[in-house]
Amino acid sequence: MLDTTNAPPPLLDVRGVTLQYKTRDHLVTATYRVDFSVQRSDRFILLGPSGCGKSTLLKAVGGYMAPTEGEIQLKGQRITRPGPDRMMVFQEFDQLLPWKTVRQNVVFALQTSGKLKGRAADEKAMQYIEKVHLARFADAYPHTLSGGMKQRVAIARGMAMEPDILLMDEPFAALDALTRQRMQEELLMLWDDTKFTVLFVTHSIPEAVRIGNRILLLSPHPGQVKAEINSLPPNTDRSVVAALEARIHGMLFADRVEEDEHV
């Protein structure tokens, strides 16, 4: 299943990772012995229905929780805690600091993490704010922005840090359908620009096919790898895309006869 012939050493290596967390009265196994590896400039998608542990897996890569079994390595270094080399973009709109303007939000990230100081931080921030077309709103406070604009700021902030890998946890899930589609296109354009590496969590098959170049399919309760497949390049013929979506749907829900999949 994994093609390891003459591949360079992976940027991110997830090996046999079992993740467990405690609720009030249960010990929940979120994922069981998950393996995958991400290469530089991958748009790697974690796809699965709710309860497959994809968000938990992303949090573990982010360093917010330690695996009970297995190991996660970034550039050969074991991940032990959160850090600015793995920037997170969350689903929630409240991920921006409300007491800082758009520009200050990006600058604060750069300065606090010790990446850049003073004028250099300011210039880098503006460069990425322009990339997401928000230069006009650089001095606006987050509460005056729409949901889509807030997510763009979060993406600009993540990219301005120029992390080894960008971790995106369903960043477009709370947006309306039209905005979501635009954001997906913009993300791809940004990728064309800088070829950043992104690990992207979603439960939407069309989104996975559109954004990713490599898709990891997870089964639920607990999350286990079902397949790792290649996606299609942008502007592929619609019928080919539809066929891949149908194939993924079949793989994810093979054991369930009737499943209401909403995108």
Binding site: Y64, G83, F90, D94, L97, W99, T112, S113
Partner: peptide, 25 residues
């Protein structure tokens, strides 16, 4: 929880997390 995670993402913890994230939030 999201804001705390954002702060920790920047490498903040302990007192610096309190001063830079929790107090303004």
């Amino acid at each position: 929880q999201t804001l705390r995670m954002v702060g920790r993402n920047y490498g903040l913890s302990g007192l610096s997390l309190v001063l830079k994230i929790l107090i303004p939030a």
